[in-house]
Each structure stands twice: as structure tokens, then as C-alpha cells.
Design a protein around this nucleic acid. Structure first.
Lengths: 243, 243
DNA sequence: CGTAGGTTTGACTGATCTCAAGTTTGGTGG
DNA sequence: CCACCAAACTTGAGATCAGTCAAACCTACG
């Protein structure tokens, strides 16, 4: 496997380090995990809802999301993911995937048998702690999404999503939250916010007109981060990021 | 403390037993946890958003919920809880509460210092597993709520909520899912589904007219469980309940 | 260039909200 | 046992935010 995969794997260690206090032996144990690196094209279904899954994936590069669908075909994205994120930690302890995981962009993932991560957690309490903490933070983000979709109006929802994306990107060391390539189509934003693509388009235009963002194809610049957070009702406390 | 608290505590052990495989020593360790039993009136705030929390609460009897609010005062209930549930496992590993916990009915809780539960988990891997599994199931429920609020129409949302309540009640050994006392006011249902109380009222009336439920004050009878599940688009897989 | 996927815009529709007025229920005190 | 009160529930009419449908316009890419 190419050396830059190991570099990328260090993204994961970086994240664990943010989540708890690892010592050198912990880090070494993570580094020695057997894994298979895999390149995945955009829009590819990595995990299918209902499947029995025995692997865990770590996102090395690119962006991914998880989604669920209603009987009538409505699609709801329930979270998006940045490099370093574990895409399906839940397969450590739950049998069947209750949702699908899909790449947004081209993506590089490390596939690790769940059993290995489980053993790692059993032998390294600090890692177990970090992983558990990660599950709890994820849950907190889901709660915020319930609030976002349930009680904010369309403009706020879209703005909130942009704020979260900008923040999490930054926390993952992917650069400034004020100017970045936004990888999702307006249809995907719609699926994440419980809106229609047409209305998302209008809300983006409204934010643009408000002077808080400037769009250039898929590049977004947040020109007034303070006002943007106000409009979005965004308070990053729920991300429980290291200070 | 009255003896029925210990009985009620066994509700929690029952739940852990459903979540994993405990041996007698595990159970004994749980039973010997120091805890303070507390009676709480209805509508009481047990945990306040933003607070630093060092205790975990277990719900012994009655119903509770968690909620978040927007800047503009919109309130969103993000989950409800049945006896045996741990109300704030997250305080084991996260500093500040990102949401509030409130009793719905009169409630009896066991308050346990988080540190004790943490130590219990460290010394009893089976319990750590069960607790972690519980966190993951909670996260799955949040994902379903995002879908519910984001992509289902008003009637489906209300129906789905009733189905989940009925199922979780039953899983917690609180009796038949086909006829039960429903503890939430229509305003609380509204806050859980992202609707207004007025519209919840109309949707309940519609479900009644459809012949799938019969209401009698706060008592609900689901007269056609199969059709109710269809209307609600309810598939209990996401609850990851023991078969 | 031609095509496909994505974005933008306009006109119309409709589900849900808002406001406001009753009605029922349950608890409390006389 | 009844009268009263607050809280919760119900119903109606009108307003509005977001959805639908449909067409036109970009942009990247083969």
C-alpha cells in the first residue's frame, strides 16, 4: 500500500488524540491495525441499510454521508463525514446497519475488521474511551440535527449545515472555515435539511443576498462568520470539540 | 431507601441483560452501585442544557424526555425515555450537557455519580459493552428521528412516534403495545414531531377517523397495529431490540 | 460541440401555521 | 356534591412558507 495511506491513517490518530489522552503504546497499537486501503468513486454506496456488516471504515480523504429512506422513497441524510471520521463504529456492537453510508466525493477509506477494533478497545482502555466518546459526540450531533430539521426555518437550516461543515472541516485540519470547497450538490443539501433542491437554491441565494456568503461554483466563502452564526443559530458547543 | 427502589433498580439490570451477556458478578456489581433514589414531580428539569453534570440518572419509573431549544425559543424534544433507561450516560465522557432532561410524568430516578459508573465499566467489560451498545442504539434512534422530522408528513410523524412509544414501552416490560396510557400532552407530541399542537390534534383525529387508534383521554388503543405501522412507515429494526 | 448533471427562475399549489373562539377534563375548595 | 378554575383539547378561517411543475441556463467533460 502506498505510503500516503499511512500518512492519512495518522489523521485518524490525530482525531483519537483530540478525543482522549493516548500514550505512545496506544498510538503504536492503532498504527499496527491491519487495514485495507480502498479508493472509492463518488456517490458509491459503502454500506447498505439492512446489511450485516463486520467491517469498520475510516475515512482517509474526501467526504461521505449517511442516509436513510422512507418507504415512499424520501431520502434523508443524517450526517456527513470529514477525513479521520469512523464511518460505522456501530458495527462493533450492532448487527445490522440501520442506514446506508455513501461517498459524496471520491474517497479513500481504510477497511478494518470490526473484531480487530474491538480487541484494540479491550486491550487499550484509553482507546476504548476515545471511541466511546466519539459515539457520544456523534449522538450529540444527531440531536442537533433533529432540532435543526424540526424547529428551524429553511434559511436557518441551510446556514446551520454550512456552519457545521465549516467547523468540522476545520477541526479535522482541513483548513480555514471561512473559505472552502463545498462538496455537496444542492440536492444533497436538500436531503440533509429536509427541504427540496429548489428551495435550497433559493435559500443559498438569500444568504448570498444577505451578504454572509459568496458562492463560486462549489466554492463557498463565509464573508461574515459572526452574522452567519447568528442567522444559523449555530452554537458549536454540541460538537464537543477540544477547546 | 424503600425496598421497591431495589426492585425498580432491577429494571436497569434487566435492560443491561437485554443489551449484552452479564454474569452474576456483573449483576452484583451493578446492584452494589451507590445511588440516591429521588422522587421528581412532573415537568421537572432534571438536567439543564449547558450545565456541567457529574451524575448519571437512571429512570426507575415514569416517563421523561430530552429537549433542546433554538435561540428564538422553539423547543424540540429529541427523545423520550421509559423505565430502565439511562438518562445521561453521556456525562460519563462529555463535560457539558448539550440538552436538557425533563420529567414528563411524576418520576422516580436513581442518581449515581458518573465516576462510579465509569469505574464499573472499567472493571467489568461486559457492562462496558452493554453501556456502549446502549449509546449506539440511542444514536440509531436519533437518526430515525432526523428521518421522521425531515421526510415524513405530519400524520406519519405522529403515528411513528406512537409506534415507537408503544414498542419501547413493551421492550421495557411495561405491558402491551396495543393499549396504554400515553403520558404526553399534545403540545409535547408537537415538540417531538416538529409540528404545532393544533396540527397534532388534527392528525390524531385523522388517525382516529382512519380507524387505527381510539383515544380516551390520555389512553390510546391501537386497534390495527399492522395498518398503523404502514401509515407510520414504522420498522422497528432501528431500535435494535433483542429478538 | 453535444450531452448530462446540476443550478436558477417563475407561476402556482398545498400542507402546515397562526390566531382566535369554544369545549372538555380534572382538580380544589366551599 | 357542586361550583369554579386552569390546563388541555377541539374546531374554524385565513395566512404563509415551502413544495411542485416546468422551462431555461450553466458547467464540466468526453
Amino acid at each position: 500500500m502506498p505510503s500516503n495511506d499511512n500518512d492519512a491513517f495518522s489523521q485518524f490518530i490525530r482525531k483519537l488524540d483530540q478525543l482522549g489522552t493516548l500514550n505512545e503504546s496506544d498510538r503504536a497499537a492503532v498504527r499496527s491495525l491491519p487495514f485495507q486501503s480502498q479508493a472509492v468513486p463518488r456517490h458509491y454506496l459503502i454500506v447498505r441499510e439492512g446489511e450485516q456488516a463486520t467491517d469498520c471504515c475510516i475515512l482517509l480523504s474526501g467526504y461521505a454521508c449517511r442516509h436513510k429512506t422512507t418507504q415512499s422513497g424520501g431520502r434523508q441524510i443524517v450526517s456527513f463525514h470529514v477525513p479521520g471520521d469512523i464511518l460505522d463504529l456501530q458495527h462493533l456492537l450492532l448487527d445490522r446497519a440501520d442506514h446506508s453510508v455513501q461517498s459524496i466525493t471520491e474517497v479513500r477509506i481504510a477497511v478494518i475488521p470490526a473484531a480487530h477494533i474491538k480487541r484494540l478497545a479491550e486491550t487499550h482502555p484509553a482507546i476504548a474511551d476515545a471511541l466511546w466518546r466519539d459515539s457520544l459526540i456523534e449522538a450529540s450531533i444527531f440531536r442537533e440535527w433533529v432540532l435543526n430539521v424540526g424547529r428551524r426555518d429553511a434559511k436557518q437550516r441551510v446556514a446551520h449545515m454550512l456552519c457545521e461543515f465549516a467547523s468540522r472541516r476545520e477541526n479535522a485540519g482541513q483548513g480555514s472555515p471561512e473559505r472552502f470547497e463545498f462538496p455537496m450538490s444542492q440536492e444533497q443539501i436538500a436531503d440533509a435539511t429536509g427541504l427540496t433542491p429548489v428551495h435550497v437554491n433559493r435559500m443559498l441565494a438569500a444568504l448570498d443576498k444577505d451578504g454572509v456568503i459568496v458562492r463560486n461554483n462549489r466554492e463557498v466563502e463565509i464573508t461574515d462568520w459572526t452574522r452567519m452564526q447568528q442567522i444559523a443559530d449555530f452554537n458549536p458547543a454540541y460538537l464537543h470539540a477540544a477547546a
